[in-house]
Amino acid sequence: MTFTGLAIALLHNLFAVVMLSSIFSLLGAAVYVALDAVDVAFTEAAVGAGIATVLMLGTLALTTSDEKPARPLQVLSALIVVTGTGMVLIYGTLDMPDFGDPAAPIHNHVAPRYLGASGEEIGIPNVVTSVLASYRGYDTLGEVFVVFTAAAGVLAILGRGRRPKRRPKRKQNMKEISS
């Protein structure tokens, strides 16, 4: 997965980059399955490897498929910033609980209640669904509103394509004014 990420960073052909990002998502989905997050893996495989790729290809069709190489100064400063941030983050992980440790704080707050009581309170075997739709209903309502707003935003930005009709007219007006 890391290698795919590196290849994304180094390639300049955007078509290859988009395809690699699709593979990247698929690998991510495999990792989610290994980490017991089946619902998440499901979503990532459908969204990341499917729809996001189609949308990016659509954008490439509307724009260009090659990028200009970055300037060396930019690359150098970016590398310095990235290495610095990475060092700080790795220093931060030294305080993190071990991987898969059942005593980690994250597993001792609300999760035991969800796992223990949702069977009787909700009566649904899939805890992810019952937390998503019931315990954290507000949260999900907000997320649905974000999806709705994003779709409305895309419609507002790209929808209806009235511009192509108007554009030649404006040019005509300019010609008339200039002549």
Partner: peptide, 18 residues
Amino acid sequence: HGDFGPGGGFQAGVIFAS
């Protein structure tokens, strides 16, 4: 079937749209 196995509205919506 999202209540009983992995699944739910988000995944179903995406698959249906795909």
